[in-house]
Design a protein around this nucleic acid. Sequence first.
RNA 1: GGGCGGUUAGCUCAGCGGUAGAGCACUACAUUGACAUUGUAGGGGUCACAGGUUCGAUCCCUGUACCGCCCACCA
Length: 1008
Amino acid sequence: MLDQRFDPAASEAQIYQRWEEADCFKPSGDTSAEAYSIVIPPPNVTGVLHMGHALNNTLQDILIRYHRMTGKNVLWQPGTDHAGIATQMVVERQMAESGSNESRASLGREAFVERVWEWKEESGGQIIGQLKRLGASCDWSRTAFTMGEDGSDDDQMVRAVRKVFVDLYNDGLIYRAKRLVNWDPHFQTAISDLEVENKEVAGHMWHFKYPLAGGATYTYVEKDEDGNVTLEEERDYISIATTRPETMLGDGAVAVHPSDERYASIVGKLCEIPVGPKEHRRLIPIITDEYPDPDFGSGAVKITGAHDFNDYQVAKRGNIPMYALMDERGAMRSDGAPYAEVAETAGRIARGQESFDEATITAMNLVPDEYRGLDRFEARKQVVADITAEGLAVMVTDEEGNVIPLVEDKKVMQPFGDRSGVVIEPMLTDQWFVDAETLAKPAIEAVKTGKTRFVPENWEKTYFNWMENIQPWCVSRQLWWGHRIPAWFGPTLRDDQVPSGKTPAADRLADDQYAKTIFCAESLAEAIAQAQRYYGDDFHVFCDDSKPSGYSTSHIGGTKPHWVNLSQDPDVLDTWFSSGLWPFSTQGWPDAKGNEDLKTFFPGSVLVTAFDIIFFWVARMMMQGIHFMGEVPFKDVYIHALVLDEKGQKMSKSKGNAIDPLELIDEYGADALRFTMAAMAAQGRNVRLSKQRVEGYRNFSTKLWNAARFCQMNECANWDGALDPATLTQPVNQWIVGELAKTGAEATTAIEEYRFDGAAGAAYRFIWNIFCDWYLELIKPLLNGEDEAAKAETRRTAGWVLDEILKLLHPFMPFVTEALWEQLGEDGPKREGFLMLEAWPSYGDAFGNDAAAEEMDWVIDLVTEVRSVRADLGVSPGSKVPASLVNASETNAARLGRHGEVISRLARLEGLGVVEETPAGAVTTVVDEALLALKIADIIDIGEAKARLTKEIASLEKDVTGIEKKLGNENFVSRAPADVVEENRQRLADGKERLEKLKGAEARLAQL
RNA sequence: GGGCGGUUAGCUCAGCGGUAGAGCACUACAUUGACAUUGUAGGGGUCACAGGUUCGAUCCCUGUACCGCCCACCA
């Protein structure tokens, strides 16, 4: 006998364990069956399950369980992501909080990475355990990790990443270059555009005067739209606006628009940056460029190529030096020669007296001595104060007549690191870039031609929009935790050290300055071999890590053989670089190219993810998948919503509004949480989660449990396989199997179309509102009756339908359904195996039975009508009311004969029969063509009864008039589809007939 | 600035060219017969607004307003 209710806490873990031990999650291995595969979006290895994971993995598990039941060879590939920055951050924070004096720096690279591995081992299983609690049916024996230990037995991921990197490098799709990149001063690494969040913050715009060199002056004229002069004055300066005064120190020019007449006379002249020691004020040229907008501010823009993305482009076009001002912490530089010396050089460059190369410019620290070492925001304050003190701020008169510096309060968009939260600094650094534009082309094409399909479709636009404007992807990170970049740098050799026929000095100046001294290879040995071939036999190549005996730096340039010391790039790759390989790296690539798993499970059937990750991950997988496998990595991309709190806010720990899915599982069970996720997963929407909703679906599972209990008590739980609808004789049984078949079809279609809410809703409605509310009530008389054949048939049908329900519901509520499957099986023939491995139901047309459906609908309508009347008129619920059906049709009279008992029971009626005359003292209501007379006139308030009728008549009359009007419209009758017209005619006829009867009832009531 | 989405019952949301729906909340009633994690009944909507297309618009089109989100961005 089933317990009173299902106890998720006690049962779920145990059920899960049994599935796992029986290898239920592994692919069937039946290669004759269609393969169905999903790769999990790998959660951070050190992460904990949050609501987003719960939604994402519930939906995947529903698909996986469904397709497994349809007999496919199913793989849900699990794994975790090493999550470079995030994980490194966690470990660093732990060290900081531990109170020990350890830090990343004190530990050193090797020990620190070792520490991260330890942490990974310690916490890496946690999230997997949590996914198991959710019921995720991944094949855990294949759990993958985006990293691996170089040189260990488990280095396949390392080899995959290296191969990808080296191949792309050899194809010219990865290159190293000095570019302006987003620099995170907290983590002291470059990050990609996607990892930058632009936020609007309150800022200021300062206006400063850049005096013309040598005290030169010009006539500054402003005109209005009509060409009338509004301002004319002699100026010895050009006015510049800036929100970042500290970057003035690195200005290389002032730019104006070529059409800007105000400044035409001073273009080509020099002006002075109004900051720094007076005797070494730097002069910079006034140039023209299309970039400045003459209508904004003064129309003149300072150009700081090394600290602003727009300026960078201008500087590149105009060959303006880009002076880097800050160090990796975002503080003003304190390296290099004293300011006076450097400023002198810069001055000569500005006057065109000295040529310059990138390396020279990079080495120059133009931060005046008094600002060196200051934090960038400190430096900003200083610069503003110094300029203002010197009287070089643009002044205005305020409302009270005071002359004050012009400082506008202004909302400015500021870039922040998405992980660190600090202000990102554009920095000129050497980084590795992927030529995303080239890789994006086939990835765009694949979606255009439908090889990969987005569901819902509108996400394609987002994808296209981004892919079509894609920028080079900066993939190097100055971190320690990650895939080390497989590139080794050779030394820069003096001219007399250069191998014959090679010209490194020239190479250095070229755009691909490093190309000839970089050795990109899948292993150190290969890199050394490459270098050896490059340098020739006169050189002996080795690497830092393996200093050969007899090595001495003095040998360089000395007697042969010369020593060439390679050192590996210290940087690691962006986490997403390896995540992008996930669909094939998890299947053993590159080792297993051509092996069964890769052939069988790549490409994946669908990728399930949230929209916030389309760019980060989906796009990268598309690019890398197509490039390396020659095929799209998945056929469908299902984009689901984000989980928000009840108020529509993004859940986050810091806001304190996060609901912990594990707590919900503890409280309501995994099934309830899963069902909630499915029911709320309407496409293209956010999911607002409330506990109440979860509670409601927990109640649903209890409802199912109790329905099963009822079946069991009534010996309906005997499981005996198939059911032939043709053998059914009872309308109620014929009807329920038809309803079940409809539900099954609806759920199947919905899942196939990724409408999880539709599938969940269909199951919910059928189980609660049809099976429990009606079917189980309707069969009670049969189960308690004398007709043994009918009883047997009903038991069999109820038992069968219950089993089918368990199957249909299983992908959504795997635990409670599996528990019921097992426990109900104890009453009947022994079940062979797990519910999760049963076949997904597919019902033929044979299950539909229109006549039975119509008959049962009539019964249900009748009962509902009586209940409504009783409730409205305040008839006490317990009392049995004498009732009869007046002037019923033959059909309905027959139906009453078959169902009178159950109707009487459900509607609390007695003496229910067919009569020709309305009995005295009866209140009547209309059911179909007949009047239903209830002898209650003496126990109710006639006024209320009348009011009820009046209301119904009014509402019906409104309907009827509406339809009459419609049918009276010539255009409607001639132009609307015939079936619509016919349907309206029928409705009108029915309405009128009913109206007449209601009016009759009203009249009769008036006589009482 | 560009793009995407939203506006339907008190709340959260489905829906859809032809009769406006669910869950929760609310109201009333019911209590040993599977289930109070329940049952029965009920109230509650100018489907944001304005035009247009159509025999017919909550639905399609255009515009407006407001609300989200994404991308870009003026120094």
